[in-house]
Design a protein around this nucleic acid. Structure first.
Lengths: 212, 212
DNA sequence: TCGCGGACTAGGGAAATCCCGACCCTCTCC
DNA sequence: GGAGAGGGTCGGGATTTCCCTAGTCCGCGA
């Protein structure tokens, strides 16, 4: 019985690298490659892979939304998030959305194999650095900072706004009304006591929600 | 005569992907892999590769500094920057530092091969998306020294906007019309090729115009 | 001296934003 | 099961920002 894998990343070289790595394992086969979240969901529905590897930052449909939809469309597929963000809030969001593994791209690539093996055994998997982060949070009693009271949409909108995206850009990406985006943006700003997109961007960089 | 290549990236999977891709080309050999800028310079000095592929965001020594030092330590090595940043300033900086190729990770991976081929022929190479960016800059008058040609009012307005001040705040502080402030702001944004207050704020933090 | 370019000052109109309220859905708690 | 809280989705309307044009002033080189 061969293991079927779906690989999703917007960088072609990462797809190629993952494919080479995974197919070097006996009995593993990459049945589909996707460069965006929408295609990943469609391909998962079609091929029913055992494990789907998803980047978090994806064009069109991000890793969070893709995870949600994939869990619905193909419940037998375990989702492994493979990303560069070691951010507690992001981790919580995707795990709640149904992902069972979370792996950082800075880890050794042997971790990818370990992660897929764990998910095939129906066990959750976290890369060492992520485990550290989760442990810190656990030990510190899960402190409720302002950013933790933000909803997923609110956190996402902050990141996108702080990347320079306009409300219209985000609305197109999410396939919702500009008004909806504005609502999330406004709600986030109210919670954080911010009063303009500029302040929002500064908040994001100061709190490491985006890279400097 | 085999071609010697150096691959540098902080993500193991990207290194693996590049290695698999490049060694599939006849006569090409990846003689060294590095996960940071310092190691890349040392390995280039030792192995004298024909082409070095460098990420821009690297721990320790970033792609810019690594390029400079590598050009000094191994002048025969052509440097190809392989990164996710389609940013005009970054492109200009690394090209001035001696890089001869600039390729985005979002491009098809066949572009990597084309880029290396070009550099082996001692020709510069830019990926399609980067060429677009450079062309836009060229057509818009090549305002490459924009940051130096900002007037004092323009620099001031950038700092104030990036501190979260609104145009009205600044107008009150300066005792001029809001329209005047907007003009300076717009002029600064035009020179810097920015298109919103958020982008202006990000520019300011990235260029250390304000404290983190 | 005269034109020229750049800085500083504005206005008009279009576009994007911000704030308020509304509706529906889900989840929790009593 | 009903009430309430919170999230996601939009519309209306005021406000702010964005872009283009334009007038004035000043320094500088032909």
């Amino acid at each position: 019985m061969t293991v079927k894998l779906l690989v999703t990343d917007d960088h072609a070289i990462v797809r190629r690298g993952l494919q080479a790595l995974l197919e070097a394992q006996g009995g593993w086969h990459v049945c589909a490659l996707a460069d965006n979240g929408r295609a990943a969901v469609n391909l998962a529905t079609e091929h029913r892979p055992d494990v789907a590897i998803l980047d978090y930052s994806l064009p069109g449909l991000n890793g969070l939304e893709a995870t949600r939809q994939m869990r619905l469309a193909s419940p037998g597929t375990e989702v492994l998030i493979y990303t560069m963000h070691n951010n507690e809030d992001v981790i919580r969001d995707v795990l709640r959305a149904g992902a069972r593994g979370y792996l950082l791209k800075t880890e050794d690539d042997a971790e990818v194999v370990r992660a897929v093996q764990a998910l095939l055994r129906k066990q959750p998997y976290f890369s060492p650095q992520v485990a550290e982060t989760l442990l810190d949070t656990f030990l510190s009693g899960g402190k409720v900072v302002a950013s933790q009271t933000l909803s997923s949409r609110e956190r996402e909108v902050i990141q996108l706004v702080a990347e320079g995206k306009s409300n219209r850009d985000i609305a197109d990406r999410w396939q919702v009304s500009v008004k909806t985006v504005e609502s999330h943006r406004t709600a986030a700003m109210r919670k954080l006591n911010l009063h303009s997109g500029v302040e929002l961007a500064l908040y994001a960089v100061r709190n490491k929600l985006i890279e400097p």
